[in-house]
Nucleic acid binder design. Structure first.
Lengths: 224, 224
DNA sequence: CCAAATCTTGACCAGTTGGTCAAGGTTCCC
DNA sequence: GGGAACCTTGACCAACTGGTCAAGATTTGG
């Protein structure tokens, strides 16, 4: 605390947190470490990431990292869990009642926005997949599969109602949507280099979403 | 050499190789090491890959790896160069004279076939991109950019001739094609898990290519 | 005010890393 | 046949790895 600064009154700051000052401080530290860890894991992958690098990024001694997260593996799992929350989010746009064109447009926009706002998280996820999903394997075959199967059912109903082209396989469409949107985060170096820019701008992401929307909507027979 | 085996006559085996037996043997060894290295790099990425793992995979002592390739970095660069050759290959399908629908169909088929036949190479490439393309950065901004710009010119001519939808941006279309096809190699765990299979079969790849072709051709206004 | 609980951190450890080296084996060419 | 060039490999090394630990600093609740 800086000299002359007023002593904080723990109970004063209302419903924001019922926790003690200690618990709050712990939460802050954990968050700080998790952010640093996500950055390092995204750049290096689990194996190549070093706890020393994470510590430096967090501005803490290495031993302190291990105080809050006993092992590198545990830290990685926490990071992955957070990443997953972000990843799944907007899959409930696809309901039978929804308009296919609207749902697809919104989903693509949301996914591209994610690639722009959370490139680190996207890359952590990509690294995990690329290395055979040793920690997310379970999730993929259970929760994610269930989600996509449900979406496929919705697509089947849409097709039966003539709302969407019947020859589009929802599973493969999702694979394409995931890949096409995440490439703007995971392979942003490649995209930037081919576009001839140092870093992707807001305009670039907007155009990416717009272009993918055009391709997919028309591809699904949704251009009227 | 095994006992009783006839002495080889170097000059005898014609145009296949002008090289001496030594040079040939060296080439074989290098190839063996490169294959092992590609496998290890694809699974671990550059930093996490160990020369010991490469040596074991190649069935050689570690010191022998370093005899043929002085450093891990040099070995990685050779692997990358080979990967790149495979990666660029079929981009010359897009010529003004070609039929857009045929070119796109063939390109997608070729790219999916690549994902199936060369998943290791695809993953090495993906790892390199994901980690910011420290070694391929140059290539991306020069050779690859030039190739894609050329393709964009072809697309513009096609559009001017009314052969393809004018609102499709060739650059972003290529990003989508690359991402959508490579996902069947790089993220095959995810694809497999969602499809509910242990490993992707030939049928799965065929369906992937077919589905992507449907989406893209219709998306480009090429369904007659 | 103080003892218990919690947090911080430099020093340390065994195992692994990429890379070296020298001694010996093999192949080549004259 | 023999010397030179090339190949093979176990032993070795300094640097770094994830993780531990104990001693001290700080905060907490009574």
């Amino acid at each position: 605390m800086r000299i002359g600064e007023a002593t904080e009154i723990p109970a004063a700051d209302s419903a924001v947190s019922q926790k003690s000052a200690r618990a709050r401080s712990r939460a802050v530290m954990e968050q700080r470490i998790l952010a640093a860890a996500a950055a390092v894991f995204s750049e290096a992958g689990f194996d190549a990431a070093t706890t020393a690098a994470i510590a430096e990024r967090a501005g803490l001694p290495k031993a302190n990292i291990h105080y809050y997260f006993r092992t590198k593996e545990l830290l990685y799992q926490k990071v992955l869990a957070d990443v997953l929350d972000i990843w799944i989010e907007q899959m409930d746009l696809f309901t039978t009642e929804a308009d296919p064109a609207v749902a697809l447009r919104l989903y693509i926009q949301a996914k591209v926005a994610l690639a722009r706002s959370y490139p680190i998280e996207s890359r952590v996820f990509a690294n995990e997949m690329l290395h055979g999903a040793p920690y997310l394997g379970r999730f993929l075959g259970s929760k994610l599969k269930a989600r996509v199967d449900a979406i496929a059912t919705v697509f089947a109903r849409w097709a039966a109602q003539g709302k969407i082209a019947a020859d589009v396989d929802a599973h493969h469409l999702m694979f394409t949507l995931w890949a096409a949107t995440q490439t703007y985060a995971d392979f942003s170096v490649q995209v930037g280099a081919v576009l001839g820019v140092d870093a992707l701008s807001e305009k670039d992401y907007e155009r990416a979403a717009e272009q993918l929307t055009i391709l997919v909507l028309r591809g699904c027979g949704l251009d009227n």
